[in-house]
């Protein structure tokens, strides 16, 4: 069953078309990578999926309901590209606030901190954290209350390789427990962690395939080169 269904979606921002007539589906319990260069429309597409983006035409459905419906607000977790964290609160205060807003039990706070490897940082003021730590606090707020769908906008940017590996392992564990994960990135080197790849360029879908399928189709061993050859084929 498709958890996210997008049908002929067009989004204009400042009169410029940013997403153009795009249709796709994301299957339940998968890790789907939304890949594309900076400015290709990844954040805009994710905003449309969580229902904070005004769309020009087309439909976006999540878990069978129109994106942004009140019923979805507890079931969909969203991590914005820039960390959405109160810098003048501690890590624990940030998480406790979002837990109360989401109606999640306070116990999920420590579980979320464990997942993002920030145990021991509870009392640190968010404003004193590094960029990578801050984006992990932001990620932790989205994990509260175990949402069925996670929409993560470049959650691994700026993190060191060990942390990135651990986070991808965490995404995999969540997916194995049935969570549907859509994660964006502008670098291809993480694409192999995904079950499925959506390649976005100038607001259009270049490919919707598995990493293996993409390699087979283009005859390239590296996904970077596969992406480039797809770009050239459409140019």
């Amino acid at each position: 069953m498709a958890v996210i269904e997008i049908d002929t979606l067009t989004v204009e921002r400042g009169r410029v078309p940013v997403i153009v007539d795009l249709s796709l589906g994301v299957e339940a319990g998968t890790v789907t990578g939304l890949l594309g260069p900076s400015g290709s429309g990844k954040s805009t597409l994710m905003r449309a999926i969580v229902g904070v983006q005004l769309v020009t035409s087309g439909t976006v459905k999540v878990l069978g309901a129109p994106a942004g419906s009140a019923t979805l607000r507890r079931r969909v977790g969203y991590v914005t590209q820039a960390p959405a964290v109160y810098l003048d609160l501690t890590v624990a205060e940030n998480l406790r606030y979002f837990a109360r807003v989401l109606g999640a039990s306070p116990r999920t706070v420590s579980a979320a901190l464990q997942t993002v490897d920030l145990v021991g940082y509870e009392r640190r003021l968010a404003g004193t954290l590094s960029g990578g730590q801050l984006s992990r606090v932001s990620l932790a707020t989205a994990l509260l209350g175990n949402p069925e769908v996670l929409v993560l906008d470049e959650p691994t940017v700026g993190l060191d390789p060990v942390l990135r590996r651990d986070l991808w392992a965490a995404f995999r564990r969540l997916a194995e427990h049935g969570t549907t994960i859509l994660v964006s990135s502008h670098v291809m080197d993480e694409a192999d962690h995904c079950d499925r790849l959506l390649l976005l360029r100038d607001g259009q879908l270049l490919a919707d395939d598995t990493p293996a399928g993409l390699r087979a189709r283009t005859g390239k061993a590296s996904l970077d080169e596969a992406f480039l050859s797809l770009v050239e084929a459409t140019a």
Partner: peptide
């Protein structure tokens, strides 16, 4: 401007 409002608008708040 910090993005917390956008984030809150995706929650039941």
């Amino acid at each position: 401007t910090s993005g917390t409002l956008e984030r809150l608008m995706t929650t039941p708040l």
